[in-house]
Design a binder for these strands. Sequence first.
DNA 1: GTATCATTTAGACAGTTGTCTAAATGTCAT
DNA 2: ATGACATTTAGACAACTGTCTAAATGATAC
Lengths: 97, 97
Amino acid sequence: MPKAKQLTLDARTRRGIAKALADPRRFDILRHLAAQESCLGCGDLLETFPITPATLSHHLKELEAANLITTEREGKFLRVQFLRPTWEAYLRELQKL
Amino acid sequence: MPKAKQLTLDARTRRGIAKALADPRRFDILRHLAAQESCLGCGDLLETFPITPATLSHHLKELEAANLITTEREGKFLRVQFLRPTWEAYLRELQKL
DNA sequence: GTATCATTTAGACAGTTGTCTAAATGTCAT
DNA sequence: ATGACATTTAGACAACTGTCTAAATGATAC
């Protein structure tokens, strides 16, 4: 039976994730995304968190750079989705120590 | 049989840990400590990492504030020890999402 | 095109942080 | 007490970051 390929993180990526998680607002956004079955749009996030669109955009960029989410344009809207594989790879990494 | 009491982290603590982990140097120090059987002194850490004593002291304070390590004076020296229970509570917390 | 709505970019600002040097404190041996 | 060594504190500085406002871009409907 084929072994499931598991993402491993280099130090650079791990650092990016840690930084993304360090801001509580960003962590809350990520958690909110993780709790969804499918994608969310900015609109939902803007209703949920008291920040301006500009600030949200900034945080999404950080999360995306850390590979914790993906975003996809759908017409006017941006569909944002939690990337669980990265998250799980990060947890495995932390479990090593 | 008695159930083992497991530490749970409030949001404030979790934030403190995330912040402590966000700096790569601090993460490296923590990992180094976690890899030891017992305590380490500042001397060992200063040989291992190219930072001044003042900077090390600063980082140890952060890690201690996050409850990730404990320190204890032993004469001239400071014995530093990784606090695994906090670490494990943090991992359990992250696993929730 | 124009209007409208969603998102991004640019720029600014205040607050935080990692690091250092220099000086202070603590602890032990002589 | 003096000296030597370990650690901490104080203060400074540059770099980074979260946030905002204002303006720009993208996308759709009319």
